[in-house]
């Protein structure tokens, strides 16, 4: 299968200048590859750097060394060194990211929040709205709420809006940070269906699943990040 993501020798540490230059090493020398149709689960104890790793792939966190190559419109691009507008381009059409937190502009309706990434990726306004509606339906967000800003929603509802936003575009690469956390069984099943559908159309999925059952159902392999933990020198 086509490789979509190739991570080579990446390391990460945080330097906290405001706290006496404290350096917090996270991991080093990670290599992994992901192909279309794969669903790789990042595992490891809390604090091992699963979310950090995912944010680095999304270019949200800076990478101190190594390469993170993403296949974007046929070309390999290293997001570690790419120009900001190239990264924005990759995020627009190639790489979707569902974080644990919904971050939106106040006052924008839920429907628009969900349809926006599709419009940005070039979908017609009406088609994007239709797709957004069908996802909100599937994820059991009552229609009465669609015209409201999701900022007023419960945590679980916000999480589902966030997921709808991530699946409204057919990204070739999906990064999912705890997509099933805080969801009830019915909604969890919908999300796992969505992931299976994405895999079926050839998306590569990198996920963090706290939930063992969910991991078993959708993931094709696992990657334990704690093995790359930097040994603290004391």
């Amino acid at each position: 299968m086509t490789e979509i993501l190739r991570v080579e020798n990446i390391s990460k540490s945080f330097t906290l200048h405001v706290q006496q230059q404290a350096v917090i090493p996270v991991f080093e020398d990670i290599n992994l590859a992901l192909s279309a149709g794969d669903c790789l689960a990042l595992t490891g104890a809390s604090g091992a750097g699963k979310s950090t790793f995912m944010r680095m792939v999304y270019a949200n966190y800076v990478c101190q060394s190594g390469q993170i190559n993403v296949r974007h419109q046929g070309d390999w691009i290293d997001v570690v060194s790419a120009a900001p507008h190239t990264i924005l381009d990759i995020r627009r059409v190639t790489m979707g990211y569902v974080s644990q937190f919904l971050r939106v502009i106040p006052r924008v309706s839920t429907l628009d929040v969900v349809a926006e990434p599709a419009k940005m990726a070039g979908m017609e306004v009406e088609e994007a709205a239709e797709k957004a509606k069908s996802l909100l339906h599937r994820l059991n967000i009552p229609e009465a709420l669609w015209s409201l800003s999701p900022l007023t929603f419960s945590g679980g509802e916000q999480q589902r809006v966030n997921i709808a936003r991530g699946f409204v575009t057919d990204y070739p690469l999906l990064l999912l940070d705890e997509p099933t956390a805080s969801l009830d069984a019915a909604n969890k099943a919908v999300v796992l269906d969505l992931i299976d559908e994405a895999k079926a159309r050839g998306a590569a999925v990198l996920g963090i699943f706290h939930d063992h059952e969910a991991r078993e159902r959708v993931c094709t392999s696992e990657f334990d990040i704690s093995e790359f933990r930097v040994k603290s020198d004391g």
């Binding site: 944010r55 949200n60 966190y61 900001p84």
Partner: peptide
């Protein structure tokens, strides 16, 4: 300088 979310979420400079 850099991507907005990168600068705000993983700031490098003191």
């Amino acid at each position: 300088s850099g991507l907005t979310d990168q600068v705000l979420d993983d700031p490098q400079h003191p």
